[in-house]
Design a protein around this nucleic acid. Structure first.
Lengths: 147, 147
DNA sequence: TATCATAGGATAATCGTTTTCCATAGCAGT
DNA sequence: ACTGCTATGGAAAACGATTATCCTATGATA
């Protein structure tokens, strides 16, 4: 929403790239800018097409590589789905709830009340008609914590 | 846990197949039995290997088809992941929280306190060391609700 | 500006899943 | 039980998103 937020995120991502010793190529800067600005959780394909507007020779592989790089630096959040492609969040690269339309694929961020809300309550807030949901926690099980 | 629960789920799945006008083939019955009994959220590959013990000529496609059928009848819950294969829950085929080990792939069902718990709290209960989590709601957005 | 490792581009490879096509076998109805 | 219709199983090809490969080009430093 706020213009300054996108700019701030852009700077943060660029700083992270610099700090990691990565090169600031035009393609990377383009991806960063798109991720910092888009509130619609874009797909790789969508980012690809937008980058192509400025750099027509860009390869899809470059987008994937850049996404992967930003992700492992914690600068983008990947929303991976099993049957459709992944979606990316560069504005809030930390875990937070999402409401997803199974028909058009729209993804919105409900204002997170602290995560201790019920599914039904979230449905009301977003105006979505919730059919089902998914709540996953990732980490190491007791057996695996011993390295 | 209880022996009777698996048997009950098996009966329910068979009844659902009958009600849907689907044939009770040996392969389907084998898949149903495995899903009703396994508490470890098996993958397609795991189900496949177990069915093969009884029916060596079984095809992987058959398992996929059967899983898909049971899923669309609401008799199994699919836990789809973007980068690894899907996992299936035939014991509790309705949305509920899962705790997943990112190292060994173990999946356990924490006793669901009503879903209004924080990630940190769930970590304590399961003994897992949570690194990140995922909370998704699926449904129709306002624009799509108008068919 | 010269150097050199890193990054980009094009394409092939990967992998879980789906589709295709035909032979087989459930499951009525006789 | 027997027959016949149609859904289902089996084998392999197709699929689609993502990843790897390989070579050239280009940032970043001195």
């Amino acid at each position: 929403m706020a213009k300054g937020l996108a700019e701030q995120r852009r700077q943060e991502m660029i700083a992270a790239l610099r700090a990691g010793g990565h090169r600031l190529t035009p393609q990377r800067l383009a991806v960063v800018e798109i991720l910092a600005e888009s509130a619609n959780h874009p797909s790789v394909e969508q980012v690809f097409k937008r980058v192509q507007r400025d750099f027509p020779t860009t390869s899809l592989a470059t987008i994937y590589k850049t996404m992967s790089l930003l992700k492992q630096m914690g600068q983008v959040l990947e929303l991976g789905f099993a049957h459709w492609g992944s979606r990316y969040d560069g504005k809030k690269p930390y875990p937070h709830p999402h409401v997803i339309c199974t028909r058009c694929g729209a993804i919105v961020d409900p204002e997170s009340p602290g995560m201790q809300e019920l599914a039904q309550q979230m449905a009301g807030k977003s105006g979505f008609r919730i059919s089902h949901h998914r709540l996953d926690f990732f980490g190491l099980c007791p057996r695996c914590q011993g390295r």
